[in-house]
Design a protein around this nucleic acid. Structure first.
Length: 735
DNA sequence: ACTTGACCTACGTTG
DNA sequence: TAGGTCAAGT
């Protein structure tokens, strides 16, 4: 195996296999390369078998790529049996096997944030809890925080400083009970139960210590307490462990990530060898300096400074936009300009922002300019209502105790089961000491009307029919049958509303997704698919080979790189978002550091003078982010392009708002006139070749109507004929 | 039991 | 804007 493509420090970190290793890996210092080579080294030197290596990555996509990378270093060895995945996916895999030890069955459901919140809401309704200033959302996040600190309901109750906390601890207690009776776990439980298992059943711990003989953790700075404990339990005995991280890139403190884990590592494991990767191979000198000038303000950081042999490079461009639309315009027009100069492909550009809501203004701009773009994250595909409804059916088939799923679909599509009937079902279920599903065994004896009985029998019949397919049919067949039996196509397409048409398109896309999953893993069963869906990260769904500009949050961008990076919304209160306490402020600075160091060649920083919220007319005057002022002036290039003359004396708030309104009006007026003069610019014409996210290339064979609402008939590859609504189809015109 | 419309609140990042 | 909630009407 060839280690010559590594620098000295990288190589030393790779070949140190005797003692626990802590690698401080600065941004762009080649840590993924080091991890891949280290795994390859462990296997190649026959120190460990592939199946005895555990590597934890931050996304499933990164896990896949890591396997491919190791395979390419060791073409002669089969590395498929390596255990590579996120904490959550590895934990889930363990728990499927060990469920019975913990009082679950292996069919347990995984509740996402939305499911947890619904459950909490049900509990609050059922127990008529009404605490002011407290809603299901805030309680869910409170419970999550408690779980990340290993605090159980009784711990919270014992230390409750007021009645409010006391009440919340009671909700927490019931919530946990309901999860258990639903044979379900939330995201936090996935990390906590393996620890429970290891502590209560030492022989299971021994089994996994033997299985995972060498443990590697990427993005170690973002591990939380349960994750650290998980690693400690597995690796303390054999001390075969390597962790890689960068305290400057710790950006998940708000979900329990603890930088102390880096210090603890040295304290807990013995004779830890520390390596520092400080040579950056990614960025220009100017980019590194700009990033460093902000993060160095932090007091609590390991002193280090990245260096590079790369060019000095361009200066950092700074632009003050009028509002978020102007900001979007500026960025889009710069992408067009730069395409000839710096980077030709759209994939070379990323726009990073602090909040998902900011993506909207960009989306409009990109559509207008006809530039392909991809938004990573935001409202997730699997979180859409129509998708969650179907997933709830599938989940209930696999796990009939799943109460949240039962509640979700008992009256979807509407079948005349309202609150009263549902309550009777639930009461019967609890009387039988079981779930609502169990109550369906005695529909006849329920005190409900004939109509309700009839639809309950139908509901039960449908589920039983599908359930009988579980062992004999593929997940795809089951899902297809379900959708047919529910007559969803008719349900969504009969109303002729574009929203519903879009929902039906999503359902078709879901089916396609299931099919793809089944094709990839022919032996997969329904629960495999459901788990895959639950544990997907935003980045996992990102197709980075598509030629389009990438838009994502700064958090999602961690670990990625792009030739050109735009960081938008650099305004006080937006980015940095939290200025209240120093710890939050430190994390915002690290987030900025992460953002800037994603760039290889060029960075643009933009901020707006006014910003709208909630899509309404009202806009708030914004101040330039202090981050920009922390960067030495000689690294900056202030872009003086202005779309509008400013009345600098207009400090009066109301006057500024007037300004914005008239500006917005003029904008939309000019946009409208542009459209009418160029006769249907943006409209579709028969014969055009278009690209669809799902169906690929196709030819427009008919257009009914104009503009957003136009109905398009398109013939896609493979003789697939589709009718789509122009405004929702998200088509890219190719010619 | 379901549909409709008025009203309210929310834009903090993720598995 | 948009999604959720509540009350009134069907």
């Amino acid at each position: 195996m060839n280690l010559t493509e590594l620098n000295n420090e990288q190589r030393d970190a790779v070949i140190e296999t005797k003692y626990p290793v802590l690698i401080f890996a600065g941004a762009g210092s080649g840590k993924t390369r080091v991890l891949a080579h280290k795994i390859a080294h462990l296997i190649n030197e026959q120190l460990f078998q592939p199946q005895n290596v555990l590597a934890v990555t931050f996304t499933n996509k990164a896990a896949k790529e890591m396997k491919i990378r190791v395979q390419s270093i060791l073409p002669q060895i089969d590395v498929r049996s390596m255990n590579v995945g996120t904490f959550h996916s590895i934990a889930a895999r363990i728990l499927r096997h060990e469920a019975k030890y913990l009082g679950f069955t292996s069919a347990f459901s995984i509740y996402d944030t939305d499911d947890s919140q619904k459950l909490i809401k049900d509990i609050m309704n059922e127990h008529q809890v009404n605490i002011d200033g407290v809603n299901p959302k805030s309680i869910r996040s409170f419970i999550s925080k408690m779980k990340n600190k290993f605090n159980k309901p009784e711990d919270v109750q014992a230390s409750a400083i007021n009645n409010k906390i006391n009440q919340i601890s009671e909700i927490y207690r019931i919530y946990q009970e309901k999860l258990i009776s639903s044979n379900a776990m939330d995201f936090d439980d996935l990390l906590l139960y393996p620890i429970d298992l290891f502590v209560k059943f030492p022989e299971r711990l021994q089994y996994y210590q033997k299985l995972f003989q060498y443990v590697l953790v990427d993005e170690y700075q973002d591990t939380n307490k349960p994750q650290f404990e998980f690693i400690r339990l597995l690796a303390f005995k054999h001390q075969n462990v390597t962790v890689v991280g960068d305290d400057d890139q710790s950006i998940y403190g708000w979900r329990g990530a603890d930088i102390q884990n880096i210090l603890n590592f040295e304290n807990i494991f013995s004779k830890v060898k520390i390596f520092k990767l400080e040579q950056n191979y990614r960025s220009t000198q100017n980019i590194l300096q700009a990033a460093h000038s902000v993060v160095e303000q932090n007091t609590d950081r390991a002193e280090k400074k990245l260096w590079t042999n790369n060019d000095v490079g361009d200066k950092i461009s700074v632009f003050e936009a009028f509002d978020e639309r102007d900001e979007a315009k500026y960025i889009v027009s710069n992408i067009q300009k730069l395409r000839n100069r710096i980077a030709n492909s759209f994939t070379d550009y990323a726009i990073l922002y602090r909040t998902n809501a900011q993506s909207r203004a960009f989306e409009e701009s990109f559509i207008q300019q006809g530039i392909p773009y991809t938004i990573v994250g935001g409202t997730k595909f699997y979180a859409r209502k129509e998708i969650k409804d179907i997933l709830a059916y599938l989940r209930l088939l696999v796990n009939e105790k799943d109460e949240v799923s039962f509640n979700r679909i008992i009256n979807f599509p509407t079948r005349g089961i309202g609150g009263t009937t549902l309550e009777k079902i639930k009461y019967r279920g609890s009387q039988l000491g079981g779930s609502s599903w169990d109550a369906l065994d005695g529909i006849e004896s329920l005190e409900i009307r004939a109509q309700q009985k009839k639809s309950l029998f139908q509901f039960k019949g449908l589920l039983e029919k599908l359930k009988s397919m579980l062992s004999s049919h593929s997940p795809f067949d089951i899902a297809k049958m379900l959708i047919q039996e529910l007559h969803l196509e008719n349900y969504y397409t009969s109303q002729n509303s574009p929203e519903d048409a879009d929902r039906w398109n999503n359902i078709e896309e879901l089916l396609l997704g299931i099919q793809t999953f089944c094709d990839d893993k022919p032996e997969a069963v329904l629960s495999d698919f459901l788990e895959n869906v639950s544990l997907q990260t935003d980045i996992d769904n990102w197709n980075d080979s598509e030629n389009s500009v990438t838009l994502m949050t700064l958090h999602s961008a961690k670990g990625l790189e792009f030739p050109v990076v735009f960081i938008a919304g650099l305004e006080e209160g937006l980015f940095p978002m939290w200025m209240d306490d120093e710890r939050n402020m430190d994390e915002e600075r690290r987030l900025f550091y992460v953002g800037v160091t994603r760039a290889m060649k060029k960075v643009f920083l933009t901020h707006a003078k006014f910003r709208r919220r909630y899509g309404g007319d009202s806009a708030i005057p914004m101040l330039k982010s202090e981050f920009i002022d922390l960067i030495p002036e000689d690294l900056l290039l202030l872009d003086s392009t202005k779309r509008k003359q400013w009345d600098t004396s207009a400090n009066d708030y109301r006057k500024r708002i007037e300004e914005i309104r008239s500006y917005a009006k003029a904008e939309s007026a000019s946009a409208a006139s542009k459209q009418s003069t160029s006769a249907g610019n943006g409209d579709y014409q028969t014969g055009q070749i278009v690209q669809h996210k799902l169906w690929g290339k196709g030819k427009v064979i008919d257009v009914e109507g104009i503009g957003e609402k136009a109905k398009l008939t398109i013939l896609f590859a493979g003789n697939v004929n589709k009718k789509l609504i122009a405004g929702y189809a998200n088509l890219k015109v190719i010619s």
